[in-house]
Design a binder for these strands. Structure first.
Lengths: 170, 170
DNA sequence: AGAAATAAGTCAACATGACTGACCTTAAAT
DNA sequence: ATTTAAGGTCAGTCATGTTGACTTATTTCT
């Protein structure tokens, strides 16, 4: 086997440690999505609806194209999910005054309520984890996970800027 | 708004920071699975096959029930995926001598090759992220992410023990 | 003014991976 | 001998993704 496997590397580059990271990400993501998934099912929605609601709530006035860029799915996939959310009054679409081809997406009051309900469970989970691990660990968590994200998308994380880039006076 | 949102809380419990964590996990997981997904498609497989191959490789001799416990999916869901992998010679099933109802799952040479190919890309991603962030950050990453995982599953992370619990002489 | 590009939406067909529910076989445990 | 456990199977459904081909507005470019 390679250096990685035989453990010749010092400290933190042994394959065991890397695999622990892989598994940590798998289990964390699975559990992190578990509660919202259960809530969504009672509304007849799935995880895709949560993602859409989350990022519209995070970027009020985001356009469809921008949303597609975040979610990395096709227009056709989004259309079903977005269509259902608009239909049932969770998301509102309004034509952009500056460019009437664009539909600016925002959450309705109903949408904000669902967003809060769903995200609440995840915020609680993170609050507890952050509190128990301590501020220093949180900084490390951020650094490592940011390194896992593709460089192109790093600027996007935690910054709801994309949608408001040329609408800063909103 | 609540304390969380208005930022009265010190340091690391503001809602903004928690939301950054949520988004970090979303983007990291999305990018982390991207490369293996592309490779899998060339073999006619999906992400479910990767998970199965990964955990069988990690726990040689794991039983179907144990695997279901890790993946948290139904027997019927696993059966298609596992069936395909056995059919095409990536995974071998052998009856347990001590309890012949059980089928012990192991990777074949072909299965190990695919596992290596897939996991390699994720190991590299983690190796780079760990290296760039430093050992201290890695420890923080572990602490926080372990806090996100449901308590019941924490012992399992990074420990391929489940399958070998009563077969320690293998 | 006319052509090209962009934003959004739509129709159709398909693959994947999850689910529920019902049922069967084999082997072990009581 | 009956019950329980491990595994498998058939059938149907749903959610979420994909490709590909088009359409409609609207803006931008030449």
């Amino acid at each position: 086997m390679t250096d990685l496997k035989s453990g010749i590397n010092p400290l933190f580059l042994r394959e065991e440690d890397l695999r622990q990271g892989i598994e940590l990400l798998f289990y964390a993501y699975r559990d992190f999505t578990g509660e919202p998934d259960r809530i969504l099912r009672t509304h007849g929605f799935g995880r895709a609806h949560h993602r859409t609601i989350y990022f519209v709530g995070r970027n009020p006035g985001i356009t469809v194209t921008e949303l597609l860029g975040i979610l990395r799915i096709t227009k056709q996939s989004l259309s079903r999910v977005l269509g259902a959310l608009v239909e049932e009054g969770f998301i509102a679409q309004d034509a952009d005054i500056d460019d009437r081809r664009r539909r600016l997406l925002t959450l309705t009051a109903k949408g904000e309520a669902l967003e809060a309900e769903l995200t609440q469970t995840q915020l609680k989970r993170f609050a507890r984890a952050y509190r128990e691990a301590g501020a220093e660990a949180v900084e490390g968590f951020r650094r490592v996970l940011m390194g896992i994200v593709n460089p192109d998308d790093r600027a996007r994380v935690g910054n709801p800027v994309a949608a408001s880039r040329d609408r800063s006076s909103d």
